[in-house]
Design a protein around this nucleic acid. Structure first.
Lengths: 215, 215
DNA sequence: CAATGTGAAACAGTTCACAGCA
DNA sequence: TGCTGTGAACTGTTTCACATTG
């Protein structure tokens, strides 16, 4: 009955764990075997007490006076993040962005192999992109099931985004990353995150203006 | 001395204003002249009290019993965000991602025209991408100054990111959007935001796992 | 004794509830 | 009367300070 090994991980911590993970993997490949919270903070771009609070939530994995064992910590963070084994990804939209994402090798090596690529445009369907054949959008459910995709990326124009999200959910996907601008709504049971470039630029412009004002 | 028209805008509000702006522009193009906080909340995907709190920070622009005047609100949000006139952008890295960004028309129409595109690879330099000629990375400072770019986007591999950031700052850019994974540090006077795809996928995987655990 | 783990304090952001105004 | 504007309560997050321990 509701056996939970990691009782409660704050969202802010979840968002930092992948950053620690990346830093730890780098350190490991440099042959480093032990890190202090101070060192890990430095490679992650946060402060040391933050690192300690975050790691203490996963369990007491550090040794006082010494630090944390790199390999062991990598395993623990992977376990908590659910990054034990690869998570197959389907990308909807094989335009410029979809292709750029498909070609980006970091996904596969990071444990997120792109296993499906669909588009609705007849000129694009059938093309080979990064070793994957672009399938028709109508085949989405099939593609998802054949490749056991559990994560979907929306890389279409804004106008299509909501219906793409609906179809992803219909295909059995509960985790969606949306690159299209504009509002997409999903049921509570689905996790939707968005990467909103226009918003990012506006935020930067705001700070730029603040700077100018203080000159 | 220190005349500040908008005394203090919380970061969380700054991050939502562009979303309101997009919704308002859509509404305006549909001929809508007045919105309630409830309606604006619906198109922005937040709740109504949040909208009211955010807008009240800019000033008392609403009419009780009626709502907000769409056109006027658009102007006010633009003013606060510093989106009055176009902000020229330079992209460093004309690989798949850099090209995808350059081709994305939403930037120009949103007030962020791409005015420069540089890369270090000889095969790419000189190519025409989205109507822009790719210039050598060494010419960055020139490109920035000639086109009055105030915002830089890093679309290079992780290994180059830090030195690209340094060069952008050296070229006079204080606002940077980084797509490369890994740590990039900048002086306090510079605003750096990052879009971290690997982290986004890890966060989704975490929630996916949470779901599975509760089944 | 160096570095972790963690309560307590401070801060930021959201939600609630309702007073106040067109 | 309907919808804004906002103090107050609450929730989440960060920072601080220090006792704890390998």
């Amino acid at each position: 009955m509701d056996e939970v090994s990691t009782p409660l991980v704050p969202e802010a911590t979840v968002a930092r764990l992948p950053v620690y993970l990346r830093g730890l993997v780098d350190l490991a490949s440099d042959g480093v075997e032990t890190v202090s919270s101070e060192q890990l903070a430095a490679v992650a771009g946060v402060n040391a007490e933050n690192v300690r609070k975050d790691l203490s939530i996963l369990g007491s994995y550090g040794k006082r006076g010494v630090g944390y064992e790199v390999d062991f910590l990598i395993e623990q963070i992977k376990r908590v993040l659910g990054a034990g084994d690869p998570v197959s990804v389907v990308i909807v939209g094989a335009g410029n962005l979809g292709r750029a994402l498909a070609y980006y090798g970091g996904f596969a090596s990071g444990g997120f192999p792109i296993k499906g690529l669909v588009d609705s445009s007849p000129e694009i369907i059938g093309q080979e992109v990064a070793g994957i054949t672009v399938e028709p959008f109508e085949e989405l459910k099939d593609v998802v099931q054949k490749n056991s995709c559990t994560l979907g990326i929306i890389a279409t124009p804004a106008a299509a985004a909501q219906s793409v999200a609906d179809q992803l959910i219909n295909a059995g996907i509960y985790s969606i990353l949306n690159f299209a601008p504009g509002l997409v709504t999903v049921p509570e049971s689905v996790t939707l995150r968005k990467v909103d470039l226009a918003t990012e630029l506006h935020i930067l412009a705001f700070h730029e203006q603040q700077r100018e004002r203080n000159e």
